[in-house]
Simulated assay, not measured.
Amino acid sequence: MTTPPFAPLSDRDLVVLRAQLGRPARGVVGVAARCVCGNPTVVATSPRLPDGTPFPTFYYLTHPAATAAMSTLEAAQVMPAFAEMLHDEGVAEAYRAAHRAYLEDRTLFGDVPEIEGVSAGGMPTRVKCLHALAGHALAAGPGVNPIGDLALERSTWSPDVCMCAEPGPGG
């Protein structure tokens, strides 16, 4: 079920990421998911940034329209309802499996004792950040992260429709 390795970053990816983030990307080890036009949507980030800072968010959602859609969902207070779903043992086990998969993917890029056992988005027991959960769902594919999948399903953004300010190389 492991997702990495990723294709190397291109110079164009770095330019697009800088525009998406409003700053240079830090510690990126690859593009984990792309827009249909080819631009980065999710990057994989080293578990330790170049300055030595531990960084638990391995799958980082960068696409501005996707991040805006997740912010809109969070503002609409959907997270308590999503968290309530974790009372269903099937959903809870799938979410725990997503947590384990996330950690397994990140470990391929280094062990960082300060963040051992910490994934992202509140996994495995809480729903804390839809941006992180959607990023994981996009990188790992449907069926791996049930809450990330649900966030993507309920959002106004679709990975199948380019909403980039500047089309990528394929769009």
Rank of each mutant, 00 (worst) to 15 (best):
Gly110Met: 09
Ala139Lys: 02
Thr125Ile: 03
Ala98Thr: 11
His99Trp: 10
Gly122Lys: 09
His136Pro: 02
Gly90Tyr: 12
Ala94Tyr: 05
Asp88Lys: 01
Gly122Ala: 11
Ala94Arg: 13
His131Lys: 15
His136Asn: 07
Leu86Lys: 14
Met123Gly: 05
Gly110Asn: 05
Lys128Leu: 09
Tyr95Asp: 04
Val118Ala: 00
Ala140Phe: 11
Val112Asn: 12
Ile115Cys: 08
Glu104Ser: 11
Arg96Cys: 06
Ala139Tyr: 02
Pro113Cys: 13
Met85Pro: 00
Asp105Glu: 12
Met85Leu: 11
Gly122Tyr: 06
Gly90Pro: 09
Ala137His: 04
Ala98Met: 13
Gly141Met: 00
Ala132Thr: 08
Ala137Glu: 04
Ala139Leu: 02
Val118Tyr: 01
His87Ile: 10
Leu108Val: 01
Gly143Tyr: 08
Phe82Asn: 08
His136Thr: 02
Pro142Ile: 09
Leu130Cys: 10
Ala97Met: 12
Asp105Gly: 12
Leu130Tyr: 02
Asp105Cys: 10
Ala83Ile: 12
Ile115Gly: 07
Gly135Val: 15
Met123His: 04
Glu104Trp: 00
Glu93Ala: 13
Val91Asp: 06
Val127Thr: 02
Thr125Gly: 02
Glu93Cys: 11
Gly117Ser: 11
Tyr95His: 09
Gly143Asp: 14
Ala101Met: 03
His136Ala: 10
Leu103Ala: 04
Thr107Lys: 01
Ala94Gly: 14
Leu130Phe: 03
His99Thr: 04
Asp111Asn: 15
Glu84Ile: 01
Pro124Ala: 07
Gly90Thr: 12
His87Pro: 00
Thr125Ala: 06
Glu114Ser: 15
Ala132Gly: 07
Asp111Ser: 15
Glu114Lys: 07
Gly121Cys: 04
Ala137Lys: 05
Glu104Phe: 01
Leu138Asp: 01
Tyr102Arg: 03
Asp111Arg: 15
Gly141Ala: 08
Arg96His: 11
Gly117Gln: 07
Ser119Gly: 12
Leu103Val: 10
Leu133Asp: 07
Ala97Thr: 13
Ile115Ala: 03
Ala97Arg: 15
Leu103Pro: 01
Arg100Trp: 04
Leu103Asn: 13
Leu133Arg: 08
Gly122Asn: 07
Val91Thr: 12
Gly117His: 06
Val127His: 10
Tyr95Cys: 04
His87Trp: 10
Pro142Asn: 03
Cys129Val: 00
Leu133Thr: 01
Tyr95Glu: 03
Gly143Thr: 09
Ala94Ser: 14
Ile115Gln: 04
Thr125Val: 04
Glu84Tyr: 11
Gly110Ile: 14
Phe82Trp: 15
Arg100Lys: 14
Ala132Arg: 14
His136Met: 13
Ala94Lys: 12
Leu86Asp: 00
